[in-house]
C-alpha cells in the first residue's frame, strides 16, 4: 500500500496548547490546592497546627523559587478555570457562534490574572 500522508490537507487543531495548560492546571490544582486550603483554611485557624510566624513566611518568600512555585500554581489553576468556563459557555449556554470572543475573554482573564499574580509576587 502506498504511504499516504494527508498532513498538508488537514488542519491540525491548536487546541493542544490550551488543553496542555488546562490539564497541567487540573493536576496541580488537585494536588496542591486541597493541601493549601486545609492548612490555611482549617488547620491553622482551628489551632491544629501552629501558624508559621511572619519571619518564617517572609524568609520563605524571599526565595524566588518559592514565589515561582506559587505563580505556577496560581497561573495554571487560572488556565484550568478558563478552559472549563469556555466550554461551559459553549456547550452549556450554546454560545458556539461566539467562539472567538468567548475564548478571548476566558483565556484573556487567565492571562491578566497570571500577570497580576506575577507582578504581585515580583514586587513582594
Amino acid at each position: 500500500m502506498p504511504h499516504q500522508t494527508s498532513l498538508k490537507t488537514v488542519k491540525r487543531s491548536n487546541e493542544p496548547f490550551w488543553w496542555a495548560l488546562f490539564s497541567a492546571g487540573g493536576v496541580i490544582a488537585a494536588l496542591c490546592v486541597p493541601v493549601l486550603l486545609f492548612m490555611t483554611g482549617l488547620a491553622i485557624p482551628l489551632g491544629w497546627m501552629d501558624a508559621p510566624g511572619y519571619e518564617a513566611m517572609y524568609t520563605l518568600f524571599e526565595n524566588p523559587l518559592s514565589r515561582l512555585v506559587i505563580l505556577v500554581i496560581v497561573s495554571l489553576s487560572a488556565f484550568h478555570w478558563a478552559h472549563r468556563f469556555r466550554f461551559t459557555l459553549y456547550d452549556g449556554l450554546h454560545l458556539k457562534h461566539l467562539n472567538a470572543p468567548v475564548a478571548f475573554f476566558c483565556y484573556g482573564c487567565a492571562i491578566l490574572f497570571s500577570a497580576y499574580a506575577a507582578y504581585s509576587l515580583y514586587s513582594f
Binding site: 500522508t5 494527508s6 498532513l7 488542519k11 491540525r12 487543531s13 493542544p16 466550554f87 456547550d91
Partner: peptide
C-alpha cells in the same frame, strides 16, 4: 498512528470532546 493522528487531531476529532 501518524495517519490517524492527522485526522483525529483536527477540531472535529478529539478536541470537541469535553
Amino acid at each position: 498512528n501518524q495517519q490517524r493522528l492527522d485526522i483525529l487531531s483536527t477540531d472535529d476529532g478529539i478536541w470537541q470532546c469535553t
